[in-house]
């Protein structure tokens, strides 16, 4: 509640022309916005651009912001729309080329004590990254941001049932991939 009051005060000051207030709003929200855009974009080179567009959009929509709604989800909604616009602009085959390059880079692993564990986590992140966008979206909101299923539904503007089935489908896919990877590991162990 107190946080919301702080936001409202910064918004008032921004609207009256104080750009320093907007800089503070940026500081308060950037970490959340940035990591979400990072996870949701396939091409990490474009993260900065999308984040920048998001903040420009937030700035120009600020006068329309309804104070009775919490601020963070509102920003997240704008961010989601910016990502959608970005994705629409991009063409699929181009994205796939980039993806292939990404794989090549990830071939180097750092060897440390908890290598297997880390390897597993890296694999898991990769698998999340390769989920179809609609599934990835719910996974990121629900598991990264700890949004409840209801909150995910309202942020994305989709029915609760759809959120549930997407989370279910995503977990199933991840489990399949994990199993496949686990099989390989155990074979190596046998050797």
């Amino acid at each position: 509640m107190e946080e919301q009051m702080e936001y409202n005060e910064l918004i008032d000051r921004t609207l009256s022309g104080n750009s320093q207030a907007y800089a503070e709003l940026y500081d308060k929200t950037i970490q959340d916005v940035f990591k979400n855009v990072y996870f949701l974009l396939d091409d990490k080179d474009d993260v900065d651009d999308v984040v920048q567009d998001t903040y420009i959009q937030v700035y120009s929509s600020l006068c329309k912001y309804d104070r009775d709604r919490p601020f963070k989800p509102w920003i997240m909604g704008i961010m989601m729309r910016q990502i959608r616009t970005y994705r629409r602009k991009r063409w699929m085959h181009f994205r796939n080329v980039k993806k292939a390059e990404g794989y090549a880079q990830k071939a180097e692993h750092d060897f440390s004590n908890d290598i297997v564990d880390r390897h597993f986590n890296d694999k898991l992140l990769d698998s999340v990254d390769n989920l179809p966008y609609k599934l990835k979206q719910v996974v990121i909101l629900h598991y990264l941001n700890e949004y409840s299923q209801e909150e995910v539904a309202s942020t994305l503007g989709i029915p609760l049932g759809t959120v549930k089935s997407r989370i279910h489908a995503a977990l199933k896919k991840l489990r399949q991939k994990g199993q496949h990877y686990g099989d390989i590991l155990s074979k190596v162990g046998n050797v």
Binding site: Y38, N121, V139, L144, E146, L171
Partner: peptide, 16 residues
């Protein structure tokens, strides 16, 4: 694991 891994990584992803 998903929750932990994502949030872990999320803390390391920092804007310039």
């Amino acid at each position: 694991r998903l929750r932990e891994t994502l949030q872990d990584k999320g803390e390391k992803v920092l804007p310039k």
